[in-house]
Design a protein around this nucleic acid. Structure first.
Lengths: 226, 226
DNA sequence: TATTTATTGGAACATCGTTCCAGACATGTC
DNA sequence: GACATGTCTGGAACGATGTTCCAATAAATA
């Protein structure tokens, strides 16, 4: 089709891959807002017009960057174990990818129809089939797991958006949650009793553990469908 | 503090409420991209500077608009029924609000720390407590339900972002899902067996029903925690 | 009435995604 | 080796956006 395989005509030539990798570096190191075509052109020592020769627009760029990251998640990890374990491993793979590249969360949550999400859908779907969930319930089940993952993805991306660049992420996170918890603790007890209770444990809670607990909750619900 | 209650000094004066309501009209009728300070100023027959006197910035405007919508969801619906039913009603309230105002999905999924989300958290949390979930598991449980809702919110917003303005939503949705399904059906069967199976039912599936199935799945999992 | 304060309207600014185009480069043809 | 052709590059220019700035105005106060 349009994608002819072509040998490099120039030394150090521009290519979609090279552009995408530079974009990922900017996104990881300087955050979502720092990825502009001007910054990207500067890093690649070229002009924005040259980039547009290889990339349709910014959506295309972000989708390619996202797929570049998601594709690396081992979609078929842990062959020998149970389907439950594979789903856990898969979900944790996404979680860890989001941890390493928080902007991915915003991207897949903003554009769930892109190929990167389809990869996750396929990976989860196969395990749900292997679990023996009846066919009529499979789509609903996978959709629920996917929604859960995407919801977390969005939250993770939101956290990263608040983050000042080049700071200690763990320390900042704890400080931020502490601030939120303090604010919550001052809410009207009559209207926010549960939130106030959560505020007590909010700064100490482990995101990864909580995520896994959510997956296990859904997996437990799955038992009732068999 | 800074928020003094003040009587209108001019007839037809600008106010945060009036600005927010105008913003919601634009968001609902013309979509997320149509909400600009210029368009808003034109609709209010004023200048952008006047708006900035009442609103800090665009984030503030969107957060206020979102809270305006979420606050209307009956957080304490169906007093007499079981906690499960209340959670379902609550979740469906959010779902229907997202249906009526799809831009809300993007907003709460992009910014989960805003007050609108806290309202949902409190509403769900109380019912989880009423269900008898042990205290140490309550936060994880509510977080899972919230992630699921936020994930769906993001997907809904993404769908609305594709939508041309002033078109029949239901018809467009069906046509769009048909296109996606056709694309999926052509994927390599070896690598995408599950996605290809889903493609068959994708255009006919009911979002609302699927959402409810997800909630029920989590509720079923909850049984195992008691 | 005179003065102060709250509020308005719109011009101006910096920055963004995107388009446009003149030129540089590599390759196929005589 | 010279020329013509299509591929790729670099950067200027365009339109739109969020935001700031400020002179002008209306209400409140003295």
């Amino acid at each position: 089709m349009t994608t002819k395989i072509r040998t490099e005509r120039r030394a150090g030539a521009l290519s979609k891959t090279r552009i995408v990798e530079a974009a990922i570096e900017i996104l990881d190191n300087e955050g979502e807002d720092a990825l502009t075509f001007r910054a990207l052109a500067a890093r690649l020592a070229t002009g924005s017009g040259a980039i547009y020769w290889h990339i349709a627009d910014k959506n295309d760029l972000l989708a390619a960057a996202t797929d570049h990251v998601i594709a690396r998640i081992a979609m078929d990890a842990a062959k020998g174990s149970t389907p439950q374990d594979v789903i856990r491993a898969l979900a944790l793979g996404v979680f860890d990818a989001l941890h390493a590249h928080p902007w991915v969360g915003g991207q897949i949550s903003r554009n769930p129809w892109q190929y990167a999400v389809l990869r996750i859908l396929e990976g989860v779907g196969r395990q749900v089939q292997a679990l023996g969930v009846p066919e009529h319930a499979q789509f609903n089940t996978v959709s629920a797991i996917l929604s859960f993952i995407l919801g977390l993805a969005g939250q993770y991306a939101a956290g990263a958006r608040l983050l000042p660049r080049h700071t200690d992420r763990a320390a900042f996170r704890k400080a931020f949650l502490g601030t939120v918890a303090a604010k919550w603790a001052q809410l009207d007890p009559a209207e926010h009793s549960f939130v106030r209770q959560v505020a007590k444990v909010l700064p100490e809670h482990d995101d990864r553990e909580q995520f896994l607990a959510g997956i296990d909750l859904i997996l437990a619900g799955l038992e009732s469908l068999r």
